[in-house]
Simulated scan of single mutants.
Amino acid sequence: MRLHCWIGSCIAFGLSLAGVAHAGEGFPGDEFFVTPNVSTLGPGIEAGLRLDDHWGLRAGINGLRYSYVYHDKKADLESTLTLLNGGATVDYYPWSDGWRLSGGVRLSANEIRGRVKNLRGKVKFGGREVMVFVDDPLTTFKVTQNPVQPYLGGGYSIKLQERVSLNFDLGLLYSGKPDLDVKSRAYRYGFTRRQIERETARYQDRISPFQVYPVIQVGLNIRF
C-alpha cells in the first residue's frame, strides 16, 4: 500500500511538472519527459526536464517486495526484502548528446525483515555438549541502510522515435554500513545470551562490507 501511494505521488509530481514545463516561457514543451524503468532498485518511474544542451533534472521513485529463504549452515533465514526509495538527480551532458554524468541523492526505506527457523547449535548440558535443534522461529531480525544515500553514475540515451528514447543508467549508491537489529528468545532452549550475542555479531560482521549499492537501470524515455 505504501509503495502504491509513493508511485501515485510521483506520477502526480510528474503531471504538475509537465504543467510547469508547458506554462513556463523558458522551457519548450518537448523538454519534459516521463521514464518508466526497471532497475536494481526495483521497478519505478521518473519525471524530469532537460534544461538546456548540457543540464537536466530528474526525480523518481522505485520499489519492490520479494520473499526468499537463505539457508545458513546453522539455520534457515526466512526473509522479505523491501526496496522503497526515491530521490532527485542532476544530469550533465558534456557533448550535448545522449551521454550524461549524473549525481544526486535518494531517500531510502530499504530493509530486510526475517526470522530464524530450524536453528541448530551446541549447548552445554550435564557437563557435556549436546546438539540442539529448534524448529520454532524464536528469533526475528531486521537489516536497514542509511536513510539518505548519495548517488554518482552515468548513462546514455538511444533515440528510437522522435519523442521516445531508450535510457541506460549505471551508478553507485553509498548506503552506509548496514544495521542489524535482532530480537531472540533462543535462551528458552538453553542457548546463552552470550551465544546469541556472538551469533548476532557474526552476522553483523558478514553484512558490514556491503556499504555501496550498484544501480543498473533501463528505462523508456517519453518526451512531451
Rank of each mutant, 00 (worst) to 15 (best):
D76T: 11
R65G: 13
G44R: 03
R58N: 02
L41E: 10
L57V: 11
Y68N: 11
G48L: 09
L64M: 08
R65Y: 13
H71F: 14
D76K: 14
T40I: 09
D52N: 15
K74C: 07
K73D: 13
G60H: 00
K74H: 14
Y70F: 14
R50V: 05
D53Q: 08
N37E: 14
A75T: 09
K74W: 15
A75N: 04
Y68T: 13
G42N: 02
A59G: 12
L57E: 01
R50F: 06
Y70I: 13
E46D: 15
P43E: 08
S67D: 12
L41P: 04
T40Y: 09
T40E: 12
Y68V: 02
K73F: 06
A47L: 03
N37V: 11
H54P: 09
N62G: 07
A59V: 12
D72P: 05
V38N: 03
S67M: 10
A75P: 00
K73N: 06
S67N: 11
P43G: 10
Y66E: 07
G56I: 00
K73Y: 14
R50L: 10
Y66V: 09
G56F: 01
E46N: 15
Y66H: 13
E46P: 04
P43Y: 05
R50C: 04
S67Y: 03
R50H: 08
Y68M: 11
Y68D: 09
R50S: 13
D72T: 04
G63M: 04
G48Q: 11
G48N: 10
I45F: 04
L41I: 06
G42V: 07
L64H: 07
L49H: 10
G42L: 10
H54C: 09
T40W: 11
K74T: 12
P43H: 07
N62P: 06
V69Q: 10
Y70E: 13
G63K: 05
R50Y: 02
G60T: 00
G42T: 02
D53R: 07
L57G: 00
N37I: 11
A47R: 00
G60E: 00
I45A: 05
K74S: 13
D76C: 09
D52R: 07
L41Q: 11
H54G: 05
D52S: 13
H71G: 09
N37Y: 15
A47N: 02
A47Y: 01
L41Y: 05
G56Y: 01
K74Q: 10
G42R: 00
Y68C: 06
G60K: 00
N37M: 10
I61N: 04
R58C: 00
S39F: 12
G42F: 03
R50T: 07
Y68R: 14
N62C: 11
S67K: 09
L41D: 03
D52W: 14
G56D: 02
V69W: 06
G48F: 01
P43Q: 08
K74R: 08
L41M: 14
D53W: 02
G48M: 07
L49T: 11
I45W: 08
G42E: 07
W55V: 04
N37W: 10
G60R: 00
I61L: 13
D72S: 11
L64C: 12
A47C: 12
G63C: 12
D53K: 09
L41N: 12
G44V: 10
L51W: 04
H71A: 15
D76P: 05
G56N: 05
E46L: 13
